[in-house]
Write a protein that binds this DNA or RNA. Structure first.
Lengths: 203, 203
DNA sequence: TGACAATTTGACCATACAGTCAATAACGTA
DNA sequence: TACGTTATTGACTGTATGGTCAAATTGTCA
């Protein structure tokens, strides 16, 4: 019997994600959100509770979606697990070198968080762990394939790749170009065995 | 004949760096700066020109100081060039895992910048290039020592280490602990030849 | 068709913000 | 000791911000 909502929650969060992605949490105004989502202020409050709460929602959604994307990229088809990681790292390098690529909500959250207790940090931490978990999974496959030595520390290796990806994101943001970022990715991949042609061959 | 300033510019910038380091550019208020530096608003304006300009000054100073610190760390004494890089990476891992470690002004600037044209980006980019240059220098020494193959791409390797450091900073910020970050650093160092004990040995 | 319950709307508010202004103070010089 | 130049002080301003309120609206069920 209550009046139904005029909006779809997913769409609103998606619009919010976009504007938060451009400005960050602190620099995004409520009016920005009103404009981006099309809802009135009060509706935003009814549905989400405030700017920060909406950001938290957007952050969670964004983390989940990023995880899904990575997960899918690393399960893709016919290549070997190591090849898939390789491909993913190189794709990320290219992605981050795009001049219009925006910094992830996760990185924004980390930088804007006030400490490790902050929800912004804890949510992002969970995202990082999940990301690493997906990588670890793929590395396990590689190990089962015999492409990785028995004694390799997969968990640590996975976290290492997450760190490199985060670092490449920042470098791309600073304007480091496609060739340089690709070279970084190739260097990073040298910790994995195999592929003699993994040596970077840039200027 | 003019009235002399009551403050020392360096000290003011140093205080500003501290408060910007805690809050970032957008979230730091002029009053925060007034409180932290002890100057009046007008004096801040006379001397620096505004919040953003002061941030740019703080950022430049901070980049320079960071570069000096890295440069010194990589020239330190009796160890071989590769050992020095190794030591530095491990020290950074520990530093970033400290729960009270703050995110660098450089990373803040990158995240708060509005695009590659933004001064925030260009200054930070310069800092990154300088950082990489210092690493490259050390790698050259290693190459001269014969610790690195002739065909190694030093420039790219240097940028790779900068990326890993940036990534470790973010992970530390997210609460990834000392052991895990150290393991990441050790993994990262595996791209360098030598030292069989470079395998991480964590849980 | 009428009434309920939540949603929407748009006006409203207190606060905090970056930046400015005019008056005053302090120093070196002559 | 008087002057000129610059630094300092603190009050001031216009705007924009996050958030709230009360009234009007809307779909649904009985």
């Amino acid at each position: 019997m209550p009046r139904p909502r005029k909006f779809v929650e997913r769409d609103v969060i998606s619009s919010a994600t976009e504007v938060f992605g451009v400005n960050g949490l602190a620099a995004t105004t409520l009016d920005d959100l009103v404009r981006a989502t099309g809802l009135g202020k009060q509706s935003l409050y009814n549905a989400f509770g405030g700017k920060r709460e909406l950001f938290l929602r957007a952050l969670s959604e964004d983390s989940d979606e990023a995880a899904r994307a990575v997960s899918e990229a690393l399960q893709h088809g016919d290549a070997s697990p190591l090849e898939r990681i390789r491909g993913h790292m190189l794709r990320m390098a290219i992605e981050f070198s795009r001049s219009d690529s925006r910094v992830s909500l996760a990185t924004r959250a980390l930088v804007e968080s006030t400490g490790e207790q902050d929800q912004l940090s804890t949510i992002t931490r969970a995202g990082i762990e999940e990301h690493a978990g997906i990588y670890a999974h793929c590395l396990e496959d590689a190990q089962r394939n015999g492409d990785l030595p028995e004694d390799a520390n997969l968990r640590s290796l996975a976290m290492y790749f997450v760190a490199v990806i985060r670092g490449m994101e920042l470098l791309g943001r600073a304007g480091v170009g496609r060739a340089a970022l690709t070279a970084v990715a190739l260097d990073a991949l040298r910790v994995l065995p195999g592929r003699a042609d993994a040596d970077p061959a840039q200027t």
